[in-house]
Amino acid sequence: MKVKVDPERCQGHTLCAMIAPKVFELDEVDGHSSPISEDVPADQEAQVAEAVRSCPEQAISIS
């Protein structure tokens, strides 16, 4: 599984990092999210799927 955060859509709601803290990191200055690595570890796939469902801006995509 690969994960992307659209930086144009992300507004820093921080839910993804709350749900999958091993996958998403938040910018120190504005709290916007980005994946630590595009490749999702196998044991994090369920959390990432839940982050996708929970993002208020629908900014996260997986492939």
Partner: peptide, 18 residues
């Protein structure tokens, strides 16, 4: 789960104090 509520608003005006 899947709780993408709008309580802090959406878009560029997302509550800055969230």
């Amino acid at each position: 789960t899947g709780n993408r509520h709008h309580s802090f608003g959406l878009g560029i005006h997302r509550c800055i104090g969230s």
